[in-house]
């Protein structure tokens, strides 16, 4: 028996306050992942490519998605023991790059919970939209949760 509550499939979590992307956080993340393109740190370089401000690296949305996923994962009724969690896979689908100044709303969809050999695979899809309601990025993440007996 998996401890993870499969009744959560289909639920959508939207209670996380908007995330405001800043130049400082984008620069910090770019340095951490070794993204050296000027568009991540230099507003003039970003504007030369047609962006309003500095552009976030391609995996920056994980910061926003994981913050929002916490509303689901930390819900006691979801029964996800985070000490038994391993990140299994991650996919980013970009509709436009995230730029500094974006105010981003995230809806976390619990897409599937399946179990095999005592390991529950929990897949969420975080849909990130901007202040105008336009789709910016979708982040699909699968966590493997080991059961009590495995």
């Amino acid at each position: 028996m998996s401890a993870v509550n499969a009744d959560f499939v289909g639920r959508v979590f939207t209670g996380t306050p908007p995330y405001v992307a800043s130049r400082a956080k984008i620069a910090e993340f770019a340095a951490a992942v070794g993204a050296e393109a000027a568009v991540h740190v230099d507003p003039a370089a970003a504007q030369a490519l047609g962006y309003a401000d500095v552009v976030a690296p391609g995996t920056f949305a994980v910061v926003i998605a994981q913050r929002a996923e916490a509303e689901y994962i930390q819900d006691p009724a979801a029964a996800i023991d985070f000490s038994r969690v391993v990140h299994a896979n991650e996919v980013f689908t970009h509709h436009r790059p995230i730029v500094a100044g974006d105010q981003l709303h995230t809806a976390v969809h619990v897409d599937s919970i399946t179990e095999r050999a005592g390991i529950a695979m929990v897949t969420t899809r975080s849909v990130i939209s901007d202040g105008a309601g336009e789709l910016v990025c979708e982040v699909t993440s699968t966590l493997a949760v080991r059961g009590e007996d495995s």
């Binding site: 992942v33 393109a37 490519l49 995996t59 990140h87 299994a88 896979n89 991650e90 790059p97």
Partner: peptide, 30 residues
């Protein structure tokens, strides 16, 4: 962090491309 490995790999590609918006999607299994 698996996401650090993924982030490092992604950055090699976006640094290599002219425009980061040319990246449509990127996915991995850890």
């Amino acid at each position: 962090h698996g996401m650090l490995t993924m982030g490092l790999a992604c950055a090699t590609l976006t640094d290599w491309l002219d425009d980061p918006a040319d990246l449509i999607s990127y996915g991995v299994r850890f």
